[in-house]
Design a protein around this nucleic acid. Sequence first.
DNA 1: CTTGACTGCCC
DNA 2: ATTCTGC
DNA 3: GCAGAATGGGCAGTCAAG
Length: 556
Amino acid sequence: MGKTLFIDFSLLCEEIGKTAKRKEKIKILSDFLLKLDKEEIGPVLTFLLGKISAEKKLGIREGGIIRIIEKISGKRFSDFLAKTGDFGEAVKEIFYEINRDKIKPALTIKEVYEEFIRISEIKGDFSKEEKEKILTDILERANPLEAKYIVKSIIGEMRHGVKEGLLIESLSFILNIDKKEIERSFLISGDIKKVLFEGLTRGKDGIRDIEFKIFNPLFPMLAETANSIEEAISLHKGKVAIEYKLDGIRAQIHKEGEKVIIFSRNLENITDSFPEIVKEIKKIKVESIVVEGEIIGVDREGKPLPFQYLMRRAGRKRDITFSGIPVKIFLFDILFLNGKLLIDLPYCERRRLLEEIGREIQVVEKFEPERLEDAENYFEKAISLGHEGIMVKNISSPYIPGTRGKNWLKIKKINTLDLVIIGAEWGYGRRKNYLSDLYLGIMDDEKRKIMCVGKTFKGLSDEELKNLTGRLLSLKISQKGRTIFVKPEIVVEVIFDEIQKSPVYDSGFALRFARIKGIREDKGKQDINTISDLKNLYKKQSLLKGKYEEIQGSLL
DNA sequence: CTTGACTGCCC
DNA sequence: ATTCTGC
DNA sequence: GCAGAATGGGCAGTCAAG
């Protein structure tokens, strides 16, 4: 079996994308899912969620696809991308222009999926050429609509409003069981394909049989941002525990016997990058355990290194331990112990268990404030020690995997600067008709020149961006591809978390998580902040953090 | 051997 | 990662 | 309030081309 055509999948996506109503999407999706053969469920979900690249590393994305499409068609891809504002839609239009609508759709889901697996397995010299050859062959057999969704599945830009949440609701509709039950299976297994497969092939029992298994990661619990410490504490009537928010890599660590696996926030296996942490975890003398913590870089004195430097260590395959960036882990939760899942226990009890097993390994400090003032002092202490901020946790909260909620609140130190817009890029998808991504400039007070400190698309509403587009176009000086450069006149107040050294921007710096707080109509470019302001802030920030330079010497 | 484009993955 | 938007 | 969409900086690795 396995005869579902790729064109039917493409038509499904088109139909789902047409409506914004969840109920309608669910109805359409459910009908389609019910018609699939067993072996098609996995591949269809992979395509539907646009997760091919995440699941099988293809090594082809936007760049390779543009090359292929241009070779097949002889057209300039950027022209069509500018017109449509959507990568897949651009491919579709190009395929119409070269009369690919004459092709009778015959590709099957199974076949396309198998070709993708082949692509993912090619490595080494000439691999790019070979990978692109296979994808070219598939696209040569595709009609415009098929090509659109083949490409969209690869780059993961589906834009049809279907993610895991909608799949869960669809399955709940099909099986007529509570959405919560399916959601739990998903969060505990971390595997949406498995949930849908079990549900569609075995029904309710299939869902209920899904249990947590060690070495299958579950989704990490997430925190919301609180506006103030006061708000965070009063929300839980003072019954909170505070921890430092360390700026590193979130790690979920599974151990059974001598076997240890470290998973990242996105459930990637990152064990090989951190051998010394594996060693640490092995010291815990229990049969089986799952703990969670933050891996940070530290200097000789144990001060936390800026995140940028930790990243020189993470993801590294060679010289892992000789890279000069020692790392440490600080645990903050325990999810599983000796065969028992602990996520339904309240925070305070999990914390107690963690401290018991954590005698030989570092656990992040916990502080229970009696008054607001204590909490505020603790926040200041966190910042002065070079941390990102604090986490305020409800002491009676269970661990709810994969969910962002108020049981965990994060508070970070933020900064603002007045900057000027010096350029902008046309948006994609829902923002295709206006300039969306803004280039931010700062005054170089020595050279009397404006330099770039990065880009942002966040903070303004779509409506405000729409209004801004006209103004920016009237200030246009030049253009390069999808980017325009403008006379520096519009001043914006920009919030950001941290200043980073930048290898790309001409100011030499970039703002981490920059977002616009508002347009300062009352200010002109003569009022914006200067590079000296920025350098002073950077210096202040660096004083609190660990020193990387010293260590670098011993490395090279 | 070096450089640059691209990809994948941290935040 | 953060922010905005439609349901 | 939730799920989804739009898009940031920057690191190492891989491969192709010079």
